[in-house]
Design a protein around this nucleic acid. Structure first.
Ligand SMILES: [Zn+2]
Ligand SMILES: [Zn+2]
Ligand SMILES: [Zn+2]
Ligand SMILES: [Zn+2]
Lengths: 130, 130
DNA sequence: TTACATGATGTTATATTATAACAATTAACA
DNA sequence: TGTTAATTGTTATAATATAACATCATGTAA
């Protein structure tokens, strides 16, 4: 079987929903919303989420246990992500900063570890909440 | 009442345990271990963990839902953390890299957000697991 | 010293997030 | 066409985390 190019039915339903939201969605809120489309169990949601994360269509915001669509065509693989998170209104934005990415991509620690992925989350207050 | 300087009984018990481990511990594994010391409920553990995180004695590894002691006297406040995580053996190390910290501390996004905290997790394979 | 405020504790119950295990179906492909 | 891998559906359960309430201890101030 060749590598999947098209999304499956459940994957499409769930990606659509996440893409329509500009903010991260939680798994059980997704579940609630897709029940009308015949997706009834948490596992169906988590399986689709896993796949979508794997192929880089969405990212997981680890500190929030929530999922947001990737709007950057460049990060087709979710291996290098940077987010800013407002601790007041919980607004989340994916950051694409070339200089920062370079710096992180080139980072070498003192232990000779080989990195293939990173996730950076900045916390603070957005303009509206300052 | 002035700001607390000494840790409470439960906080001490739980910090001791985490400091004895060089690897992150999960809340319910902590709970299991401290039952012999009279801590019986998850909430007692989570309350101590919250406090210890707040004062910078421990850090939460967000992608693993686990807690590790801070061994750096400088990061008394858990506001700027960098970790390397081996995806094979799950070994976690806190990274203190001056240049990287500077870069992250000085990072300004295009939206004018005011940051007071960040957390960066690198994933890969450690020397033993390559 | 009495009242008050704050922080910590103990306890029961419950909410939230995520996976195990198994059976059935669908889609690519040799 | 038979084989394999991916996906789906379903039930149950594991793992992570918080709500709500009562009590106790300690520092501050009238
Ligand atoms: Zn992205
Ligand atoms: Zn905000
Ligand atoms: Zn630290
Ligand atoms: Zn390793």
């Amino acid at each position: 079987m060749q590598k999947q190019e098209t999304l499956s039915k459940n994957q499409k339903i769930i990606l659509d929903l996440i893409e329509k939201s500009d903010q991260p969605l939680k798994a059980y809120s997704i579940l609630f919303d897709v029940k009308k489309k015949g997706i009834n169990a948490p596992l169906q949601v988590y399986r689709a989420l896993d796949k979508l994360v794997e192929i880089g269509k969405i990212h997981k915001i680890e500190s929030r246990n929530a999922f947001i669509a990737c709007k950057n065509s460049k990060c087709q693989i979710a291996k290098a992500t940077v987010f800013s998170i407002c601790e007041s209104c919980e607004d989340v934005t994916e950051i694409h900063d070339h200089k920062l990415s370079e710096h992180l991509r080139n980072f070498k620690d003192s232990k000779g570890m080989k990195y293939n992925k990173y996730n950076l989350e900045f916390f603070g207050l957005c303009k509206k909440c300052i």
